[in-house]
Write a protein that binds this DNA or RNA. Sequence first.
DNA 1: CTAAGTGCAAAATGTTTGCATACTT
DNA 2: AAGTATGCAAACATTTTGCACTTAG
Lengths: 144, 144
Amino acid sequence: MASRTKYRTKQRDILVEFLKTSPGVHLTANDICEHMKSCGESIGQSTIYRRLEELVDEGILSKYSIDANTPACFEYIGKDSHSDGGTCFHCKCEKCGSLIHMHCDEMEGISEHLMGHHGFRLNSMRTVFYGICKDCMQEDESRV
Amino acid sequence: MASRTKYRTKQRDILVEFLKTSPGVHLTANDICEHMKSCGESIGQSTIYRRLEELVDEGILSKYSIDANTPACFEYIGKDSHSDGGTCFHCKCEKCGSLIHMHCDEMEGISEHLMGHHGFRLNSMRTVFYGICKDCMQEDESRV
DNA sequence: CTAAGTGCAAAATGTTTGCATACTT
DNA sequence: AAGTATGCAAACATTTTGCACTTAG
């Protein structure tokens, strides 16, 4: 979880800068590659993958792995936001694919329960709740 | 969620039969391939993948996709068991990789909360909680 | 000057697909 | 007989890695 980078490189700065401009947005490694290309700031994809993983370790990014066929996506969290004030949970709709962000106090009770009763320290940045969102549920009902 | 298979084949029967003997166990497609080979009941891997996916749709199996580098794993649930009696939650340790099963009433409150307050119908079979397990936490502490 | 980071192209991995063959009904 | 499933091998997509080269400190 600690910082691993020894050197500060141009590529790392460009990457972090870009991510910082899109807080709350989910980006795949490929999205980022494309963006860089279209900016003329081309960074090699291996570097992107390497830095991304590192930033996750540092707690600056969170990573969501939906499944093996969907590229992982990354979201800027920032160094500060996870001090404890605003844990963020995510729900992924299995139907329409939308990813819903939740800042919910009640949900934070889960962490405590898991810790207290199961000795498990939840990483809420990495955990994604799968299910069907409101909109898709309504569609289902009206279709019957 | 509805049955999709039209024909009942030998391979499907062998597969279901094997899965049925290991309820609550997590198996990867590869585990199953290997088992079949070692049994002399070799089933092609494409068939295994195809049937597995189908069984998930039918609600007989649940599938956990940890991330792109980890093969998905499948667990026998059975046609009956998800009537509502025993929702199963899973915690995945990010450190040692172990997958912990939880049959916990309190956790089921999450489903209700998500439904009631966020209009989201949780699929607990597909949801995995990431974090650090008890054992790894102790190791961490003793190492400092 | 040395350690670390970059980027290409190649490898690795898990999963899916095309197609000829075989099986179910 | 018609429709479906099988199984091989090839295709895929994402991510990782080997290595020569560049850059940061």
